[in-house]
Amino acid sequence: MNRDLPLQGKKVLVTRNKAQAQSFGKKVKDLGGEAVLTSLISFRPALSSDRAPQFQADIGQADWLVFTSVNGAKFFFSYMEDHGIGISAASRAKVAAVGEKTARYLEDRNVRVDLIPERYIAEELAEALRQKVGRSDKVAVLKGNLSRDVIKETLTPFGVDISEWVLYETVPDTEGLRQLKDAAAREAFDFVTFTSSSTVHAFMSILKEESKRWAEKGTSFISIGPLTKKALSEYGIPSTMPEVYTIDGMLDAMCSISRKGE
């Protein structure tokens, strides 16, 4: 096998949202693999227009803006644009991002990121914030409907004023679920990848028993981080988790598994 193409001959099922799956699939292809894309979840706006004045006032008073995902950042900018709110409205706030991809998205839009945790999970972000924020500081958390309340639960006991803004919600992708059924009926996969626990649950609603058989036959399941790994384990599916909780980390893990199997 060509060492520059460690996924040569490998078929990878990418279960990521349609808008985000293309880049993942291209990276698989660049490593010699074949990616099959099935979008199992989609996202839609959750914050109503009548809350725009309150939202603008809240971020204007915040000492910190906290972004728990790239989607949170995307919907933040979309909501701001749709309601004529300039980013200058939040100029006094420092910014925290859960990981490098979220930080990059923000910085590409001229927002300086002041804090990124060493590990890209909510607990690490909350702990990093705890060491930075002052008592009575105001923190606005920009999140989705499935995001946990880790930051609020961690910081509130220290007197930090927390507001949470649910900017988007996660819903099943009906067409993608149908495509998953079709793909499972005709394909065999070397790797199945998951980038969120919500995707795991959507997948298992269709292919729970099939997944167990795939695992027994040698399919490797790749989870992006601890919560996704935990979700898979609840269905009895072991998975490999990268050291760095990113797409590139997942690709490195697949390459390592592939090379060991040579």
Rank of each mutant, 00 (worst) to 15 (best):
V36D: 07
E34C: 11
A35L: 04
L40K: 06
R16N: 09
L37D: 08
K29P: 05
V36L: 08
A35D: 07
G32M: 10
V36Y: 02
V12T: 14
V14D: 02
L37I: 06
L13I: 13
E34V: 13
L37Y: 01
G32A: 15
T15A: 04
K27V: 01
T15G: 03
T38W: 00
N17T: 11
K26A: 05
G32E: 03
E34T: 13
K27W: 01
V12E: 11
K26Q: 14
G25F: 00
R16H: 06
E34R: 10
K26N: 09
I41M: 12
A21Y: 02
E34H: 13
T15N: 07
G33F: 02
K18L: 13
S39P: 02
A35C: 13
L40M: 12
E34P: 02
T15L: 05
S23Y: 02
L40S: 10
G25Y: 04
R16K: 15
I41L: 09
K27Q: 11
N17I: 01
I41Q: 06
F24W: 10
F24L: 06
V14E: 00
G32W: 07
Q20S: 08
K27H: 13
E34M: 14
G32R: 07
Q22L: 12
T38P: 00
K27F: 03
G32P: 06
V12D: 10
A19C: 04
I41P: 04
T38L: 00
A19S: 14
I41R: 01
L13M: 11
A19Q: 11
V28H: 07
F24H: 10
F24S: 06
V12S: 13
S39R: 07
E34L: 14
Q20P: 03
Q20L: 03
G25V: 01
